[in-house]
Amino acid sequence: MNDISKSKGAWEPKIIAFLCNWCSYAGADLAGVSRYQYPPSIRIVRVPCSGRVSPNLILDALRSGADGVLVSGCHPGDCHYISGNYYARRRFALLKRFLEFVGVEPDRVNFTWISASEGEQFAQVATEVTERVRKLGPATHLLKEF
């Protein structure tokens, strides 16, 4: 069941992107408004704030079969909720290093700051992350075999 395409030749990565509502989700919208094209690999989950994204959710995405994860919030200082992205930054910094430590490839889990006016940057990030994940191939380490 897990993405049938994985067993076929033409593998396309699936990447879960947790985007904060106020900046990064708006940036992704702006990419659309400006018609910046990027690979159709990203599945966006809208969250109120990057500070809402717990390490558990990131691990759950990998466990459920995501080949990569992207979490994006407002730039430091721009958080709609004053400080959510600052806490998130600490949580993510530790999680990223830790996942790499246990052998999850550095490019699987990615964090970015994208503002509401950075549509082009969003498209670039989506492209870049897709390429990085594509190079790694399907994620298997934390994948649950149902």
Partner: peptide, 20 residues
């Protein structure tokens, strides 16, 4: 506790947009 606080200038090299 370190995860219940923050500094404005905490390291963020791991942020892809920053490292690019």
């Amino acid at each position: 506790p370190p995860l219940s606080t923050y500094k404005m200038d905490d390291p963020q090299d791991f942020i892809l947009t920053e490292s690019i």
